[in-house]
Simulated scan of single mutants.
Amino acid sequence: MTLTAPEHDAPLLYCVPDAMRFLSIKSKNTIYDLMRTGRLRSVKEGRARKIRLSALHEYVALLEREAGEQQGASAAAGATVGFIGTTSVSAGLPQPASAMTPAASGS
């Protein structure tokens, strides 16, 4: 099996300061907290933590999904009539958008 270099020569692994710049985060402690809580995946290389490029993209996608869920939740909070069931929060994890389903209308 032959590994080929990415076409655009971007590194596959980033150190914490590089991840800070990529995500526009000003504190390395924030990056370490994200890694510790599992929101930002990382690998260990010797004693150093490295973040894969794909993990940085996944974290940004996670933020976008959470922002969309918050917008949907705030819109749904204003009009709860017509929804059935309850939404439970398990261990602080984001709930899928399908957690609340519109009630079946008679027409």
Rank of each mutant, 00 (worst) to 15 (best):
A10C: 06
S98I: 10
Y59F: 15
T101V: 14
R36A: 13
S54M: 07
A61W: 01
A104T: 10
I84R: 13
S107K: 08
E7H: 10
A103Q: 10
S54I: 11
G72V: 05
G85T: 11
R36V: 00
S27M: 04
L13K: 02
L13T: 08
A67L: 04
V43T: 14
H8P: 00
D9A: 05
L62G: 01
F83K: 08
T37H: 12
M1D: 09
P11W: 03
A103W: 03
A5M: 07
L34P: 01
F22V: 12
E69Y: 08
P11H: 07
L23V: 12
R65L: 08
S74I: 13
R41F: 04
S42D: 02
A5S: 11
M35F: 04
G46R: 07
R47V: 08
A103F: 10
A104G: 05
S90P: 00
L40Y: 05
Y59L: 14
T30R: 08
T87D: 04
L40H: 08
L63C: 14
F83T: 09
H8V: 01
R36C: 02
L63R: 15
R36K: 14
M20C: 15
P6K: 02
L53H: 09
E66C: 04
E58V: 02
A55N: 10
M20P: 03
K28E: 15
L3V: 15
A55C: 09
S27R: 14
Y59A: 03
S54T: 13
E66Y: 02
G92D: 08
A48W: 04
Y32D: 08
A76D: 03
E66V: 06
S88I: 15
A55R: 01
